[in-house]
Design a protein around this nucleic acid. Sequence first.
DNA 1: GATCTGTCTATTGTAGATAAAAGACAGAAG
DNA 2: CTTCTGTCTTTTATCTACAATAGACAGATC
Lengths: 292, 292
Amino acid sequence: MAKQNTVFKDAFNRCLVLLDTSSALASEPELGNKLGVSRTTIRAILTRLEEIGLIEWSKRRKVVLRKPVAADYFPTAETDSLSEIIERSFMRRILAGGAEPGMQINELELAREIGTGTTSVREFLIRFSRFGLIEKRPNSHWVLKGFTPEFALELTEVREMFELRSAAAFAHLPDDHPAWAELDSIAALHREILADVDNRYREFSELDERFHLLVHRASRNRFIIDFYDIIAIVFHYHYQWNKTNARQRNARAMEEHLVYIDALKSRDPARIEDACRRHLKSARETLLQSTN
Amino acid sequence: MAKQNTVFKDAFNRCLVLLDTSSALASEPELGNKLGVSRTTIRAILTRLEEIGLIEWSKRRKVVLRKPVAADYFPTAETDSLSEIIERSFMRRILAGGAEPGMQINELELAREIGTGTTSVREFLIRFSRFGLIEKRPNSHWVLKGFTPEFALELTEVREMFELRSAAAFAHLPDDHPAWAELDSIAALHREILADVDNRYREFSELDERFHLLVHRASRNRFIIDFYDIIAIVFHYHYQWNKTNARQRNARAMEEHLVYIDALKSRDPARIEDACRRHLKSARETLLQSTN
DNA sequence: GATCTGTCTATTGTAGATAAAAGACAGAAG
DNA sequence: CTTCTGTCTTTTATCTACAATAGACAGATC
C-alpha cells in the first residue's frame, strides 16, 4: 500500500465531532481550514459521511441527518501516522527493552518487527539521530549510544545554558506580549492540579512541556527552541517509563515551577536565575536517577 | 541502478596510491583496514587491478606488475557519493541562486534536476533540516527559511555560548591530552600559511574548521560537538561563495587564532575568554556581511 | 593456533511505482 | 466580483525490488 490514509481517517473523526454540534456543515474550503487538510480530503470525508447516511450532500447543501455514534468513528489505532507508530515502537524497544549501549540497530529487522517498509524506518532513524542517542556507520548499521548518565549530563548541560539564557530574555519581553498571559494561564493550571494532586499529578508531563517551551521561545533563537524538542522527547518517554515516586516528584516540580513563574513575573534577573537554577538542578537529578 | 559503486571506485583510487610505493600488496583484511572498506570491496578492487594488468593475483600473492598511470584512476566525478552530490547541488541552489526566504522546495523537481531518485533527495532534506535553514510542512512541500541576518545571529549566539564554554574546558585538559599536540601543530600551520599568505590564504577554510572543532571537542558534550557541524557547513559554503576580501579576512582571522591559541596554552581563564570573544566577534561580523 | 582466502548470506543505498493528499483552474452560484 | 464546486494535475509518503557493500563461517595456509 503506497500510503496509509491516516490523514483522512483522523480528519474524518475530527469532523464527526464538529458535526455533533451543528445541523449543517460549512463550505469545503472553510472545513479544510478548520481541520487542517486540503479540499481533496474534505471531499473524501463528505463522500463517506454521505455514504454512511450522516449527511445529505448536494453542492453547497450539507445537511446533517443524524448524530454520529461511536461506530461511525474510525478506531484510533488507524489514525496514527506511520512515523508516530515507528517512534513509539522504537522508543519502547530502546527504553523499556534491554537496550545496551553499543547495540546494533538493524533497519530491516526493525521494519519487519513494526510491519512497515524500510524507507520509513530509515527516515525515522535519520530524523531521530539528531537526538544524539544513535549514530550511523555509513554503509552499515546504526549504533545505539544508549540512555546513559553521560547522555543525561550532556543533555542537561546544554539545557541549563539555554534555559538560563531564555529565562533572562523572558524578563525583557514587552508587557503586551502574549507570553505573559500564557504564563498566567500555566500558573493557574499548576495551582488547580496541585489542589487535587493525588488524582491529577499525571497531567504534569504535558504541563511541564508547555511551560518550558514557553520559556525557551523567549530566546527567539531557532536553535534553542529546536533543542527543546530533544528535552521534550526524552522527558516524555522518561515519564512514561519511570513511575517511581511520580506523584511526589511531580508535586515538587510544580512547586518549583510556581516559584520560577513568580520570579519571571518579577523581572528581577537575580531572582529568575536563582529559581531557574534550583528547578533545573532537581530536574537533572530526576533524570539521572533513571539512567543506568 | 540500485546503488552507485562509489565506495569501490573511491577505494580503488586510494589503493592505486598505495600501490605506487610498494611492490606487493598486503592481505585482504589488512587492505580493508587501511582503506576503510569491507573485504568484499577489497576483492572487487583486486579483481579489477588484475584485469587491467596492474597486479598478478593468486591467493596470497599480489605482485605489482607496473606503476599506475593517470588513466588507471576513476575520474573524481565518479567517486563522490550521491549525498555529497545532492548537498553541493542544493547548497549552490540556495546560496548562489536567487534563494528568497519563504520559497517552496520541491522534492521531485530537485531530484529531476540533480538526476537522482526522490528517496535520496528526501533523506538529504531530512538530514539537512537540522541546520535550521529549511522546514517541512507535513504532507506538503519544504519551505526555505533562508540564509538571513536572523539566521546568522541565532547561529552565532549559540556558537558563542558553546565556544566560550569549550574554550574554558580546554584549559582543564590534562597535560598529556593529545589535543595539546594537535593545537601546536595547528599553530605551526597558521604561521606557515601566514608567511606566504598571498599564495596560501585559501587553505584557511579547512584550517579554521580543524581548529574550532578541536576547541569544541574539549567540551566533551555531544550536543556541542554536533552543533559545530552546522557552523562548519555554513562557513564552508560561505567561504566558497563570498570571496570579497578573502585574503585580508583570512589573514586577520589567522592572527586572531594565534592569539587565541596562546591564550589557551596559558590556561588563564580571563585571557582565554578575552581572545575567544574577540575572535568570535569578528567571525560574526564576517558572516553577517554576507547575509541579505 | 592465528591469520588468510573462498564462498555464501544479510543489510544498506537507491530507483521506480503507486495510493493518498495537496493544490491549480475554470466555470457555477451567490 | 467574491467565494464555492467540479475536475484535473502535481507532489508526497510509502512499498518493493535490486545492485553494492558489509559481514559470517568453514576450510586452507602459514
